[in-house]
Design a protein around this nucleic acid. Structure first.
Length: 752
DNA sequence: GAGTTTGAAACT
DNA sequence: CAGTTTCAAACTC
């Protein structure tokens, strides 16, 4: 397969020419060619490279064990489909594809009917799409240059794979041009293209990130996900959107109105009629082909995997959310009737979220997720994630092009993180570039809470009122720096990635848009010293349930990324960052006389031991070659303190993927050389902080391969090693642990 | 509001 | 890396 010319792929051709082309004998001939024969996983990446202009959006994890089996499957599917498949741009394709898929692996795959049904009912289009997307396609996005969620690229690539000819590129372009008037969905796609091309795929990135979060976060608890229609819709929205991007042009063509429209209406507004009609038809189609949903899930999972890399960035966005939410949790908890001390504090979260009048389930489903995920939900309605004024207390984000700070990614980053060295100052719609530019979209729907900002469902008036009360004032952090010029982490504003605003009492403040360069440079310096300097102090995570039941039971929690060092406060005052963050102390804390009501260090140790035993048992059960099973002690700690976090974060948002990183096949990751068995009977996994925050670890897929070839990804350490301190042992990845485990087990069974 | 305490951040 | 200093928030009065 020759690599398509890039220009060909990007430059739309006149539709007339295309149709002419399609009718041409050459086209027909090409169509009859065995299209996928040369297609192989290894080579499949080549064509795609050309088409992706942005480096991150679809970047797949460098390696992934999960991918391998999937890949095998995908290959198989491809193989099978290849035999029966000839591209004719007709609807028969669906049947063919699914037929090809069915017998192979999917039959052995236990599919939850609920999942299926819900998938069908909520993500018809996406399901359809997903089921049709050759899995390898995702991998083909795996290229540093592929990251731009280039609609064209994806479509083109897919088309390319299917047809085995670059002629389809033209077709794709044609389709794109046709679809331009298909409202937001299309706009998004096109915008994404534009943005990707311009390396400014902010909103697109945002959506992709959000989508990945959604995918990651919701998938694991499919039951939850599916049980909740709204969630399903929300998720399906993202899935649909994602799927739409990957949707082949011919499919779009066959749709009555604007196929994508319905998809994106998942995101924004209720589906319009045509979409419904279409969905109805598709539903019937789907019902006749239930197994597709399996593939859907798998592909979605793959997509998730693919875009999980994106989370390396989004994680950081999330970071700030955690950071903010931590203290705010406490505030809310304090006012919550369910106010409970100790480790159950977070259990309030759910009720907290749910108790919000009118709070949608989505919000409750994303407790603590924080801004960007909730903003996603908001985006579904508003299409706009950023540039939305929320509260009086508004801040302008420091948009550091290079920075990894959470807030950058939270909002500004959505605009600029692909625009390296091009700081973006989020401005109000009015254009006033005061310091008071708000951070996020109108997330009001989602009751996002944060230390500095609180989003609620309330109207602007209410917001104003809220802002006026003491609580709100308090939530609007302002610094009083005198000597640091607000350019050090002492400054809360600066540390939060925010510019100082008027209410601040700082002196000689340089943390203002006017001094943007200084700010950015300073941030850069600080980050060079400590890449996680702007990372969230409190990271919420969840456990690694092996079943849904476990998922609900297994405590998830949060912890301070570095642990506190309290000596006198007993971790009972806000001096203690753990306490301030609303999390319990963990073993990483060096506090003395810890009495943290959110979880004491000692308790953590005890529970850690218990969990360790559990995992050891698992390890021995599952595999004997986990000679170096290492668990994240701190993850265990976390998992112990807030049992209800799962309830709060049913989808692992924010969190952590598997505390105990097992491979899909149930094996523990084979260690790199640095991996060793701890002296203690604890199984531990240490993940460098930065890596953990990147989140790759959580991707179960990464455990295998990432750890495999060169051990780049996993850098386990002895917890007792000196370097341990500098290692973050927690995992930020919000990968659906449950899903993975389930799948892993299935794969393991197959293998056995 | 001033002063004190505290612990993180920064520095050496 | 440990000890010290600086800093600003949290707290107390």
């Amino acid at each position: 397969m020759d690599t398509p010319d890039k220009s060909t792929a990007t430059q739309p051709s006149p539709s007339s020419f295309l149709s002419k082309f399609e009718d041409s004998p050459v086209f027909n001939y090409i169509s009859t060619l065995s299209p996928i024969k040369p297609f192989s996983l290894g080579h499949s990446t080549q064509p795609l490279h050309l088409n992706f202009s942005s480096p991150q959006a679809f970047k797949t994890p460098p390696t992934s064990y999960l991918r391998e089996p999937k890949f095998t499957r995908a290959s198989h599917v491809t193989e099978v489909s290849k035999n029966n498949f000839s591209y004719n741009g007709s609807e028969g394709k669906n049947a063919e594809t699914s037929t090809a898929i069915e017998p192979a692996d999917l039959q052995t795959e236990e599919v939850d009917k609920t999942d299926r049904n819900v998938t069908v009912s909520t993500t018809d289009e996406s399901s359809k799409l997903v089921s049709e997307i050759p899995r390898p396609l995702k991998y083909e996005c795996d290229s540093p240059e592929n990251n731009g969620v280039h609609c064209d690229a994806v479509k083109t690539h897919r088309e390319f794979i299917v047809a085995g000819t670059e002629l389809f590129l033209e077709k794709v372009n044609q389709d794109n041009s046709k679809e331009e008037d298909c409202s937001f969905g299309k706009e998004m796609g096109m915008q994404a293209i534009r943005m990707a091309q311009n390396k400014e795929a902010c909103e697109w990135d945002e959506f992709v990130c959000e989508a990945s979060d959604i995918l990651n976060g919701h998938s694991p608890t499919k039951e939850n996900y599916h049980d909740d229609p709204e969630d399903s819709i929300a998720n399906s929205g993202m899935l649909s959107f994602v799927a739409t991007v990957l949707q082949p042009p011919n499919e779009q063509k066959t749709d009555v109105a604007c196929p994508d429209l319905s998809e994106h209406h998942h995101l924004e507004v209720p589906m319009n009629k045509p979409a419904e009609n279409r969905n109805t038809n598709e539903r019937s189609q789907m019902s006749a082909n239930d197994t597709r949903t399996v593939l859907d899930e798998e592909i979605v999972h793959h997509f998730r995997t693919t875009i999980d890399d994106k989370q390396q960035e989004t994680t950081r966005r999330r970071c700030l959310v955690y950071e903010m939410s931590g203290s705010h949790y406490r505030k809310l908890l304090a006012s919550s009737p369910n106010k409970a001390a100790g480790s159950s504090s977070f259990s309030n979260n759910k009720s907290l979220m749910a108790s919000r009048p009118g709070g949608n389930k989505f919000s409750s489903a994303l407790p603590g997720i924080g801004l960007h995920l909730n903003a996603l939900a908001a985006a579904a309605k508003d299409k706009i994630i950023v540039k939305r004024q929320t509260l009086n207390c508004t801040r302008q984000l420091i948009s550091s092009p290079c920075t990894t700070s959470s807030f950058d990614y939270l909002i500004s980053d959505t605009k600029s993180h692909t625009t390296q060295m091009a700081p973006v100052v989020v401005k109000t719609e009015a254009g006033e570039q005061k310091d008071e530019v708000q951070v996020s979209g109108d997330v009001s729907e989602n009751s996002v809470v944060g230390e500095g900002i609180e989003f609620s469902q309330s109207s602007p008036k209410k917001k104003r009122r809220k802002a006026e009360n003491a609580e709100e004032t308090d939530s609007c952090k302002r610094c009083n720096c005198k000597r640091s010029k607000c350019l050090k982490l002492y400054c809360e504003c600066f540390a939060a990635g925010l510019y100082c605003v008027e209410p601040c009492n700082c002196q000689d403040c340089f943390n203002k848009p006017v001094h943007e360069e200084i700010v950015l440079e300073t941030r850069r310096q600080i980050e060079s010293r400590n890449p996680l300097a702007f990372a969230p102090k409190v990271i919420r995570c969840s456990g690694t349930p092996n079943s849904l039941e476990e998922l609900n039971k297994t405590p998830a929690s949060a912890r301070h990324k570095r642990g506190c060092n309290c000596k006198k406060s007993g971790c009972l005052k806000k001096y203690c960052e753990c306490y301030q963050g609303g999390v319990g102390c963990s073993l990483s804390c060096r506090c003395e006389g810890c009495k943290n009501t959110f979880g004491r260090k000692e308790g953590s140790e005890r529970i850690v031991f218990e969990e360790t035993r559990f995992f050891q048992r698992n390890a021995s059960d599952i595999s004997s070659h986990s000679d170096v099973p290492i668990t994240d002690k701190e993850n265990h700690d976390q998992a112990t303190s807030e049992p209800s976090m799962n309830a709060r974060q049913p989808f692992n948002f924010g969190g952590m993927a598997p505390r105990f990183p097992t491979l899909p096949n149930g094996h523990f990751p084979q260690s790199c050389t640095s991996q060793n068995i701890d002296n203690s009977d604890k199984i531990k996994i240490a993940v460098p902080e930065d890596e953990a925050l990147k989140g790759d670890y959580l991707l179960p897929t990464t455990y295998v391969k990432s750890a495999s070839p060169n051990c780049k990804r996993i850098s386990p350490h002895f917890e007792t090693s000196p370097g341990w301190k500098s290692c973050r042992k927690l995992i930020l990845r919000s990968l659906p642990a449950f899903t993975v485990d389930k799948e892993s087990k299935q794969l393991l069974e197959k293998l056995q």
